[in-house]
Design a protein around this nucleic acid. Structure first.
Lengths: 187, 187
DNA sequence: TCAACTTTTTGATTTAGATCAAAAGATTAC
DNA sequence: GTAATCTTTTGATCTAAATCAAAAAGTTGA
């Protein structure tokens, strides 16, 4: 899934719109374990993940990392709240693998949103989709056993679950690494 | 906060836009404990809560209700995913107090979204706001103690926490009623 | 190639919160 | 106004998962 496909899958952009929109995205290649946004910074870019893998996470008071979300191929990666509201990010954003990203700056996005009705529509639909996914995770976390939460992870991120350290997945699922290790063993 | 204020707070609608938009909302008065949407139904309307209180909830396999969200005065209430994607709702939607709602049908909303660039913008901003709020709850649920989750509730819904049965709040926070009762006692 | 480091697994113990059970307190309706 | 129902509190016990600790396995780099 490349960025063009993603755009037209959501909205019937005209050829001209599409070209203009795509011209504002810059291809960037980023090595593994690079931090794109730090906590407290305003997230300046929205990234489309063409290849590779990223995550958002935050630090608890005791210094432990808590993974908030994984971003695989074909999705947009950002600290959403920070990017859209241009407010300080609660999260770090980092790559977990060497990645090819397409980046758009906030002011360019604003420009496109103001210029194209279709762009607003696209971002609305994208936001609703993110909302649905977060709600899925919330329900998994809120009322399922550690075991069931792992199953949710497998469904939502089938490819990702064996590409990242166990600890990242455990904290994403709201359990300890030891618990996740034991769950995996009993498969 | 009435619906007009909410609209113009987000987006600088023109006078004509605003009148057209408002004309598609119907005032409905609903008694306490009325179900607006059932699980499995497609949510046909988006409701603005002018007065009163509502919630969304679902039933676990064992028949227990789990509150998913509370909707107080001045917010939009719906089974968001179902309304926007016109897919079967996972949730029930009900009033918890006698309420005055302003209702708009999905097809009217679609019409307005297609007609007004500003309407798309409004719905995008609204979606992002919902996203931010859900993320807040997710973080509370995922890594805080029962006690801290209750504190989050007090912050997010200060007025609501003493207007609804304890059990509704407990399930919203992912704990049992007994635990919440004990937490409250130790204040 | 092997020392240093990181990640995962395994075991023993503890604990926050669930479950079960029942009493006490509020509401509702006849 | 009191029986019936619903909601909240309290107590005793249980359990899933956390914590603490250390061994095993895997990775990296000089």
């Amino acid at each position: 899934m490349n960025i063009t496909d993603l755009l037209v899958n959501y909205v019937a952009f005209s050829h001209d719109e599409l070209n203009d929109i795509l011209s504002h995205f810059k291809k960037v290649e980023v090595k593994k374990n690079q931090i794109l946004v730090k906590e407290g910074q305003v997230c300046q870019n929205l990234y489309f993940v063409e290849k590779g893998l990223g995550r958002s996470y935050y630090l608890k008071e005791d210094g432990k990392e808590v993974t908030q979300w994984f971003f695989g191929q074909g999705v947009f990666m950002s600290s959403a709240d920070s990017f859209f509201n241009q407010s300080p990010s609660y999260y770090y954003l980092e790559t977990l693998e060497d990645a090819i990203l397409y980046s758009i700056a906030h002011q360019d996005m604003d420009l496109l949103l103001a210029k194209y009705h279709n762009m607003e529509k696209f971002m609305r639909l994208l936001s609703i989709d993110m909302l649905s996914k977060i709600v899925l995770k919330l329900n998994a976390i809120q009322f399922q056993t550690a075991r069931e939460r792992y199953d949710y992870m497998i469904t939502e991120f089938p490819d990702i679950s064996n590409r990242v350290p166990l600890g990242h997945i455990a904290s994403y699922l709201g359990m300890t690494q030891e618990t996740l290790s034991r769950i995996r063993k009993n498969n």
